[in-house]
Amino acid sequence: MLPNIPELVIFLVLAVIAVAAALGMLASSNAIYSALFLVVNFGVVATFYLLLGAPFIAMAQVTVYAGAIMVLFLFVIMLLGAEQMKPTSHNLLWQKPLSIVLIILLLSISFYVVLGQGVSTGSDLMQNTSGYGSPSAIGTLLFQKYLFPFEATSILLLAAMVGAVVLTGVRKQRRRIRKSRRL
C-alpha cells in the first residue's frame, strides 16, 4: 500500500524540525535557548501524536511538558542567572570520548531495531488505532483496566506534593521558634 502522500510530507518536515531542535538544544551555549529548543521539540512530538491519531496525548504533551514543566525550567534558569554556560573544566574531559561511544551504541541499537522490524508508515498505524486515542477511550482504559496503577500514581504525586509543602513549612516554623527565643 502506498503511504498517504500529504501525511508523509508533513511527517518529513516535522522530523527535520524535531532533529534540528534537538541538535539546537545540545549545541546552544545559552541555557535559555536550550530550554526553548526543547519546547519546540515537545511541540513537534505533540504534532506527531496528532498524526498518529492520538489527540488527547498530543494536547496533554503540550499542556504538561511544553507548557507547565518547561516554564518552570525557564523560571529556575532565569532566577539562578545560570543562562551562560562556563567553559568546561578539565575534570569533565573524560565525558567527551564516553559520550561518542554511547552515541554510537544508541544509534546502532536503534538502527538494528528499525531495520529488524521494517519501517512501517504512519498510515497503517492510523488504521490500527482509529478511535484508540480519543479522550473517552483513554478515560475508559484509565478508570477500568488500569485503575490500580492510575490511583497508585496519583497517591505518589500527592505524597510528593505533601513532601514539598512540609519541606518549606518546617523552615518557617524554625524561624518562628528562633524569633520567639530572641524575645
Partner: peptide
C-alpha cells in the same frame, strides 16, 4: 479535544 486545546494554548 477542543477544551484541552484551549488549555494547551493557554499554558
Amino acid at each position: 479535544v477542543g477544551l484541552l486545546y484551549i488549555l494547551a494554548i493557554a499554558s
